[in-house]
Design a protein around this nucleic acid. Structure first.
Lengths: 326, 326
DNA sequence: TAGCTATTGTCAATATTTTGTATAGATACG
DNA sequence: CGTATCTATACAAAATATTGACAATAGCTA
């Protein structure tokens, strides 16, 4: 049993008011007056009536502070917080820049990964949902995806291959993760204005869309609009679509050798892109990591061996080729 | 900048007038004078008589602003909005086309369906997104799904069959709609507390999940938690999962005869459900509409010939069987 | 064309609310 | 004992509410 009880740990009364003021940047007097006027934040009391705030309350305070700093009125921010919590919606850490970004390779993220895997294998969707929400209050979405969702998807695939979980459990878990990824692909920060969407598509004869979806989400988070095609589409059709919408880039992902081989033919269908480099054609996927020889025969930008490398390289390249206006 | 999730617009009074002015670009004084002159927008009040606007009201304001920016008179835009909302019908002003006016979007659902189809076939994702947002300012999500999304999905399937659109365009359009449906399935009002999720799954050997996704969204909108399995899962596995999570109901959908025939066998795998009626087993899908004889050999609750009937019947039955606490 | 009118956004003046901060006396903590 | 925290009250700056007036525009009429 994994011993990570975030719920309990963060509800524990820990910090006195001065500490909280230093942690959040909210003056002591303000904290008190907020409590009196709005009933927020709530705090346990010592026998002598001194306030003790929990970790969770500090997070909520940070969120409210962030909203207020962005111009929202205090009462409104607190109303919104409470409304959002009643609805079970996550506060949009997604739209507001993460304050004081925690270190990237935080060991607790791998603990979250194990916990999420466990919940999904047990088909505990509601708890899994809650866990994702909690992770998002602590870490940016990008880290959640790269360090938690990606390994979890991978492990579920393995468990299914090994016959350790039923088809139903696998479908349920996969759809759970897929739903969240697809949602994140269409929500989030406003996309760059006047930029046509980047085309994301599996290689021909390729049906695994996991890493493609993740690339889609990461691109979208970095404000590139995304046209998600998903599973296997003939290269002719991709080329026609790319030309029609004037896409800045086409991204292919392949897991299987068959798809990688088919990709070698892309310049035949995109002569213009092969000659001029526009639109950008990029590719990646596990098969190119395992079989580096396959990369030699595929033109275009190789996205590197990891998703992290991939999104960095793609984002950087797009930014050098285009200068999107906000 | 605060980005509103159009899909979750609620009636909760949240935003003060200054915030609304920033969100909509309508000056504070104008908002007040509109209220005074036209009775729109409406706003709740704080104990001190300050206005509090809901998200939905912000969306309505955005819609009106868009119409005004396109040249419509303010009073007329507001009249149109109110007319549409109260009677679900267009005022004559719009049905008898104004001479030489820039085209104002026609707020009728079938018109929206055609417009959305057109945009998706042309791969105009951003415009399609905007259109869905507009529709949601005027109609509830349930109408958008049943009267716009469903026929659009259907027509895209037909266009693809007829070879009128490329595989790429079809994938793009389908994924666009799928993304929105899956998002709506995991967002929305807080689900009933303490109720295990309803299991949604395609019949065996059935790969079309369109109407299943729609049922999922509609159920979720009515606050039933949903476990979405999607495509073809063996009945054994479905039964095991259903038992494990103590689901209140299992919903099967089938489009093809093969799936409908396989469904006849479900009582073998769910002896308890067949005997006691718990969990509820319900089914539906186009094949049962076309071939009513197939219904005779499938036990369980038949959901009726339309999605509208289906959700009503399912919701009602679930409510009689269980009394969820809020 | 000139004049009248309805529509519409903006502004001004004054009163009230909201909100952060400051002060004072008492109590708790270590 | 010194410092921190408690409650309660007071106060000033910013935002909002209400009412009435006014200028610009468009459409209509004589």
């Amino acid at each position: 049993m994994n011993s990570l009880h975030l719920e309990n740990a963060s509800d524990e009364p820990l910090y006195n008011i001065g500490m909280v003021a230093r942690m959040t940047g909210i003056p002591v007097a303000t904290l008190r007056v907020w409590e009196r006027r709005y009933g927020f934040p709530t705090a346990a009391r010592t026998p002598g009536e001194h306030r003790l705030f929990s970790e969770r309350e500090v997070l909520r305070l940070r969120w409210v502070k962030a909203q207020v700093d962005e111009g929202m009125q205090t009462s409104q921010a607190i109303r919104t917080l409470q409304h959002v919590q009643e609805e079970g919606r996550l506060p949009d850490i997604l739209t507001t820049p993460a304050p004081a970004r925690p270190p990237v390779s935080d060991p607790s993220l791998s603990a979250f990964h194990n916990r999420l895997l466990e919940l999904l294998i047990d088909s505990e969707l509601q708890q899994a949902d809650q866990l994702m929400g909690e992770i998002l209050t602590l870490y940016p979405l990008e880290d959640l995806i790269l360090d938690v969702v990606t390994p979890t998807m991978h492990d579920i695939g393995l468990a299914w291959l090994a016959g350790e979980i039923s088809v139903a459990a696998e479908h349920l878990a996969t759809n759970f993760l897929r739903q969240h990824l697809l949602m994140w692909m269409i929500t989030g920060p406003a996309p760059f204005d006047g930029v046509p969407p980047v085309v994301l598509v599996c290689a021909p004869d390729e049906w695994h869309e996991g890493s493609l979806m993740i690339m889609g989400v990461l691109l979208r988070r970095r404000r590139w609009p995304v046209a998600y095609l998903g599973q296997s589409v003939p290269l002719t059709d991709v080329a026609a679509l790319a030309e029609k919408i004037h896409t800045p880039a086409v991204v292919f992902v392949s897991i299987l050798e068959k798809g990688a081989l088919a990709l070698q033919e892309w310049p035949t269908y995109f002569p213009q892109a092969a000659a001029t480099g526009r639109p950008l054609v990029a590719y990646g996927g596990q098969i190119f990591v395992d079989r580096s020889d396959l990369r030699d025969n595929v033109q275009g930008l190789y996205l590197g061996d990891t998703l992290r490398d991939g999104i960095e390289k793609l984002d950087a390249t797009l930014h050098t080729m285009f200068t999107p206006r906000a």
